[in-house]
């Protein structure tokens, strides 16, 4: 591998030198020609050796750089994707002797079944969608808040940062399942469950009752409840987002801070007028990450249903469900991004 690269490199570098020399010579010749016979239309300069112009050659190198990935993504990504789309239009019967799967084209039947016949899928779909739309802004606001705190200067900042990024290291894979007590044998008391039962209080309800407000709005109460009672999941799910916002906060130029101080901006004004515009591109990135992350989470209801389908060998049905889900998610994502993008401030330059 590296030898080939070296070979190519040597060849290329020689060519480059040659061409540079040739070009210079040609230009000189052309100049002499022009001065000698100014009235004659100058012919296009003759090229010897490599005939591909520099720009085209660079483009070819571009292909060279991505060739490995391109091959891989055809084999490991695009082909499986296409195959899975084909499955979704077929009845699949496992057949180990003919390449694993025999297909029976049935058109849109799988999609129709998923939406009309399946007992839980059509109910779970809007639920998961709503849940995500509720949780995403919470996670974003929370992680911006934490990122701003972690960006301030105080003693023990390094330790605080290390703790807040711990979920990034741990919160994937089966460890979080045990922590959440979600193992196959239901009822295993994990850390988070114990945490929730230790600190379970209906603070919001109590407060609202205390204030004499009863059932002002179920949705509002639900949002506040998610924030207060589910703080465990909130904190454990926003590691990457905090990281992204923190890195965005570091890009705010010092001159902006200085100017704001000179003008006598309060911290509140500083946040809205300087911090938020500067980190707004990252808001889009975290938004995409949060939404995708919560949709792909194997613990959400739709994913549970869909992954359970695989056990019955109904891969066509499963594929149809997944693609339906994915399309809905993609459309939702597209709409959200289109809206948010209007408020994003990109620095010129």
């Amino acid at each position: 591998m590296s030898e080939i690269v070296k070979d190519i490199d040597n060849a290329v570098s020689e060519e480059v030198i040659e061409e540079v020399a040739e070009n210079a010579q040609e230009q000189a010749e052309a100049a002499i020609e022009e001065t000698a016979k100014p009235k004659k239309a100058s012919k296009p300069p003759k090229q010897k050796g490599m005939k591909i112009p520099y720009e085209r050659r660079k483009a070819l190198y571009g292909y060279g750089f991505i060739a490995l990935w391109l091959l891989g993504s055809i084999y490991f990504f695009m082909m499986p994707v296409i195959e899975s789309i084909i499955y979704s239009f077929c009845d699949t019967i496992p057949a180990p002797d003919q390449g694993g799967m025999s297909l029976d084209f049935v058109g849109l039947k799988n999609y129709k079944n998923a939406l009309t016949v399946h007992p839980t899928y059509p109910i779970a779909l809007p639920e998961v969608l709503g849940d995500t739309l509720l949780k995403t802004p919470l996670i974003l606001v929370f992680s911006i808040f934490i990122a701003i705190i972690l960006n301030q200067k105080f003693k023990g900042r390094t330790v605080a940062r290390a703790i807040f990024f711990l979920p990034v290291i741990i919160a994937t894979g089966p460890v979080i399942d045990i922590i959440n007590g979600n193992m196959d044998s239901a009822g295993t008391n994990g850390g988070s469950e114990q945490f929730n039962s230790l600190f379970e209080t209906d603070l919001v309800g109590d407060l609202l009752t205390f204030l004499g407000i009863y059932g002002i709005s179920d949705k509002l109460t639900e949002i506040i409840n998610t924030l207060t009672s589910d703080i465990f999941n909130l904190v454990w799910n926003s590691g990457i987002q905090i990281l992204l916002f923190l890195s965005a906060l570091q890009t705010i130029p010092f001159s902006a801070k200085e100017a704001a101080q000179m003008e006598g901006a309060t911290s509140w004004e500083y946040f809205w007028k300087i911090t938020l515009p500067y980190i707004s591109p990252m808001i889009v990135a975290s938004l995409v990450y949060t939404i995708v992350d919560s949709f792909v989470d194997p613990e959400n209801q739709v994913m549970k249903i869909v992954l359970g389908m695989g056990k019955n060998w109904e891969f066509g049905y499963q594929a149809a469900m997944l693609w339906l889900y994915f399309i809905i998610v993609a459309v939702a994502l597209g709409i959200v991004i289109a809206i948010v993008n209007k408020f994003v401030y990109y620095e010129v330059g």
């Binding site: 990504f77 082909m79 994707v81 899975s84 995708v292 695989g310 891969f315 994915f326």
Partner: peptide, 18 residues
């Protein structure tokens, strides 16, 4: 970008066969 967005579960079965 699609590689980031498409959940890996979608392509499990074709990948397994491959």
């Amino acid at each position: 970008i699609a590689m980031i967005l498409v959940p890996p579960q979608i392509i499990t079965i074709p990948m397994y066969l491959q």
